[in-house]
Design a protein around this nucleic acid. Structure first.
Length: 215
DNA sequence: GACCAGGTCCTTG
DNA sequence: CAAGGACATGGT
């Protein structure tokens, strides 16, 4: 595909990062304290962020927007508060599982924050309802760890750029081309989502031509 | 009314 | 291990 840049996948990934940084600069992304980020990470699964914000507000209104409160709350109460995000029964179950892990297993967020990243990631992946994207979102935005978040948009953009690395290996690929800096990790994922939502709108859009944006 | 949304788990072949 | 279905509300 001559419209796309040539070269290896790492080169293409690095170029995507640079192009998007120049295009968007600093953008606000994923507000909230650690508890709110963890809750939002579950709620945003296969769901628009605007709906997640509504649910977070509902939880706040009911004093349930924390791991400790959720650990103690009835599942039905949580279901009612997160209904607007869809999959509300299973998400309530996942939130309870996470709250149990954070509160009972780790002994709270403060102790959790002292766990080394590989150990913490493995622990999160063992929690019901937490897969790679959710775990990395929690690590990156909740604990400011340099753990790159790969989502459906990352996969799309990589495809449009001609990257052939499979999705399962996109995390180490992008981590190899960006600085070991939590702020860079935050912004890079944000840029990818922001771009893909607006311009790389289909699974294999073929139309956004991302690599042509800056030559 | 059809289709999709910042996934993950479970069941089959 | 890959593929397909389930989970569910809300917006376009």
């Amino acid at each position: 595909m001559s419209a796309f840049s040539s070269g290896n996948d790492a080169g293409k990934a690095g170029k995507i990062v640079d192009i998007l940084k120049n295009r968007f600069g600093e953008i606000p992304w994923w507000p909230g304290n650690t508890d709110e980020v963890m809750i939002g990470a579950i709620l945003t699964q296969q769901t628009r962020w605007e709906n997640v914000e509504q649910a977070l507000q509902q939880l706040k209104d009911r004093d349930m927007c924390s791991m400790a409160a959720m650990n103690a709350a009835d599942a039905e109460k949580i279901e009612a508060a997160v209904r607007c995000t869809g999959f509300y029964r299973i998400k309530a179950r996942r939130l309870k599982a996470l709250a149990g892990f954070v509160t009972d297993i780790c002994g709270g967020v403060d102790l959790m924050a002292s766990i080394p990243t590989p150990t913490l990631r493995a622990g999160l992946l063992g929690v019901y309802g937490i897969g790679e994207e959710t775990a990395d979102s929690i690590l990156c935005y909740g604990f400011s760890r340099p753990s790159f978040v790969v989502d459906a948009y990352t996969e799309r953009i990589a495809w449009c750029a001609g990257i052939t690395t499979p999705r399962s290996a996109l995390k180490p690929l992008f981590e190899s081309v960006i600085a070991e800096d939590s702020h860079v990790y935050h912004q890079t994922h944000a840029h990818i989502v922001e771009y893909a939502k607006g311009w790389c709108t289909k699974k294999r859009c073929e139309g956004c031509r991302i690599m042509a944006l800056n030559g």
